[in-house]
Design a protein around this nucleic acid. Structure first.
Lengths: 115, 115
DNA sequence: TTTTGTGCAAATCGTTTGCACCGTT
DNA sequence: AACGGTGCAAACGATTTGCACAAAA
């Protein structure tokens, strides 16, 4: 419950399990990391969160579960929403026989411009 | 070297480290998993492979390093190329100040149709 | 007392790293 | 003897799981 409030009270956010864990700890809510994971998964199953896989290691949970895409800043590991309307995917290929499209994820990978 | 042959002899492939490791073991090429990882990373640095992050856990290496996107079958963990020409992303948002777009990844998540 | 829910210690799994070994200069 | 390259055992970090405890029936 407390975790729920932390997640959704502040508007759209992208959290990693560890980030939420630290936040909870700082807020003197005593939970273990495992509990944070379990809670995040439960919210995800119910459709309140969306799990975003963007780089190999950690995974992000997005409190904005609606259709939209992401910027991902390499090296900084920051994830930023792109409003759904700003990306338009044309010409989606047909799904192979027997399968249907569950979701389309677009990740725009950013790199800090040098100079 | 042997790993290189395994990877590129069979045309376009998507391998996980573990898959390549099993293959090598079966082919009586004695390597450790760590070596497989190191080798995959070296190939990637040199631009012969492309690392694809598609779900939180394992990561895939694609022997097709050119610009193209992927189908990903949930539950089966299968990764399939979509020829580059079959996906067209319109209206890319501008990169935020100070950043440039490094790459755009599109993952079309598939689910087995029931019935 | 049984049953159901909750939280976490410990295990798991993919991945990385530091170092030992060996051939070459 | 110093150097460079290669492979891997062991460490690591993110995530999952099995189980112990507690409240409800």
């Amino acid at each position: 419950m407390s975790l729920g409030w932390m997640l959704f009270a502040k508007g759209d956010r992208h959290v990693t399990a560890e980030l939420l864990y630290d936040e909870a700890t700082r807020a003197k809510v005593p939970v273990s990391l495992a509990t944070v994971y379990n809670t995040l998964h439960q919210f995800t199953e119910v459709g309140l969160l969306r799990q975003v896989a963007v780089d190999g290691s950690k995974s992000y949970f997005d409190t904005n579960a609606s259709e939209h895409h992401h910027f991902f800043v390499e090296g900084e590991d920051a994830l930023v929403d792109i409003p759904g309307a700003q990306v338009l995917v044309d010409k989606l290929p047909a799904a192979p026989e027997g399968y249907e499209i569950a979701r389309v994820d677009v990740v725009v990978r950013l790199r800090r411009k040098q100079g």
